[in-house]
Structure formats: C-alpha cells, structure tokens
Computed example of a mutant assay.
Amino acid sequence: MIFPIVAYGDPVLRKVARPIEKDEFNLPELVENMYQTMYDSSGIGLAAPQIGQSIRLFVVDGTPLNEDEEEEDKDPSLEGFKKVFINPQVLEETGDEWAFEEGCLSIPGIRADVYRPEFIKIKYRDIDWNEHVDTFEGMAARIIQHEYDHLEGKLFTDYLPMLKRQMLKKRLTDITKGNVKVDYKMRFPK
C-alpha cells in the first residue's frame, strides 16, 4: 500500500514522535508499505510522521545514490545501506560539519545546503526487535540525521539561515496550500 506523503504545514511534522511498543503494529507490513511509498516517491528515506504516524520509525535505502556512479565515485557508506530504524536514539554526532544540498518528500521542489556532522552513533531496534548500536558516516549518516530529525519535529529548512527561510516563505506556503506539482500522492493540511 502506498501512503500519501504528508506536506509541509501539517502539524504531525512538528511533533516529537512517540516510541513504539513491540507488538503495537504489524511492523513487517507497515515497514513494507513505507518502503513502497518511499520508492514510489523516488525517496531515499521516509519517516513515519511523513505518512501521518507520529511514531519513532524510519526507513532508509541509500543504495540508489550509488547506482549511476562510476566505481571510483561510489560512496562506500551507501553499499547495502537499506535499513529500518525503530525507536532510534542518537548517542553521538561527531566530526566536521559538511554541506550537502538536501531535499524532502514533504517539501517538494525546495532544496538547500544543510551542514551536518560527518559521523553519527545511534541506538535502534530492527524489524526483528533486535537492538543495535552502530556508527555511520558520510552520506549514510546524513540520511539518518535527516530522517531522525523528522522524529524530533524538525525539518531541513530549520537549519537554513533566517534570510533564506524568508526567501522560501511563499514557496512553503504554496506547498501547505497544495499549490505544488509532484508525481506522487500527497496529503495537504486542511
């Protein structure tokens, strides 16, 4: 099942998501639906708030970023980088901050440079409810940081300088009103 992506302006995107209990959801089905939704939207990550669920869950698949790259240009952090993060908790963010132009399925048509630390250490559960503590770097770390922000009620636009946010205000308002062209299903605030 493909869910509509919740658009900028919906209050669910600004809530701190709550933890999931082990048997609260049919997790395999929910996760599969989230992956289908993400792929249908040409995304590389999707957090539960983006489908209207204020719960601590996100899925990622960074492997498409390497598909069109020459062998020497492939990002090693993205090799086999398809994961489910349940009840994640960031333990540490370290390393130099580096800029990369980010976008978001909930904020279509807007991209901007965001600075994030190079490494992230995170504790989370997988689909089988096994607990992991892993450190990720580079683009994999960035994807996790972006999706984790959704669970904290943050959006990539929050990291932009005030002037840049002011310049984007009309475009963001248009997204909230549904005045945006996308090739995937979206749900706009009422």
Rank of each mutant, 00 (worst) to 15 (best):
F3S: 05
P4S: 09
I5D: 00
G9Q: 02
P11F: 03
P11W: 03
P11C: 08
V12E: 06
V16H: 12
A17Q: 02
A17I: 04
I20Q: 03
K22S: 04
D23Q: 10
D23L: 09
E24W: 07
F25A: 06
F25G: 02
N26R: 12
L27G: 04
V31Y: 01
E32F: 07
M34F: 02
Q36E: 13
Q36F: 03
Y39P: 01
D40S: 15
S41R: 00
G43W: 00
I44L: 06
I44Q: 01
G45K: 00
P49I: 05
P49L: 03
Q50C: 03
Q53V: 11
Q53P: 01
Q53A: 12
I55K: 10
R56I: 07
L57I: 10
G62D: 05
T63D: 11
P64K: 13
P64M: 13
N66P: 09
E70P: 06
E70L: 14
E70K: 15
D75P: 05
P76I: 14
S77R: 10
E79P: 04
E79F: 14
E79D: 15
E79N: 13
F81K: 07
F81A: 08
K82Q: 15
V84Y: 04
F85E: 03
F85D: 02
I86K: 05
Q89P: 07
Q89Y: 12
E93G: 02
E93F: 04
T94Y: 09
G95N: 10
D96H: 10
W98Y: 14
F100Q: 11
F100I: 11
E102R: 11
G103L: 05
L105V: 05
I110C: 06
A112P: 09
R116C: 05
R116K: 14
P117T: 12
E118F: 12
F119G: 01
I120G: 01
I122M: 07
I122L: 08
K123D: 12
R125W: 08
N130C: 08
N130T: 06
D134R: 05
T135G: 05
G138V: 02
A140M: 06
A141Q: 01
I143V: 13
I143Q: 00
I144F: 03
Q145P: 01
H146K: 05
Y148R: 01
D149C: 08
H150T: 02
L151K: 00
E152K: 14
F156V: 00
T157F: 02
L160Y: 01
P161I: 09
K170N: 10
L172W: 01
T173A: 15
D174G: 09
I175D: 00
T176I: 05
T176E: 11
K177D: 06
D183N: 15
K185R: 15
P189V: 13
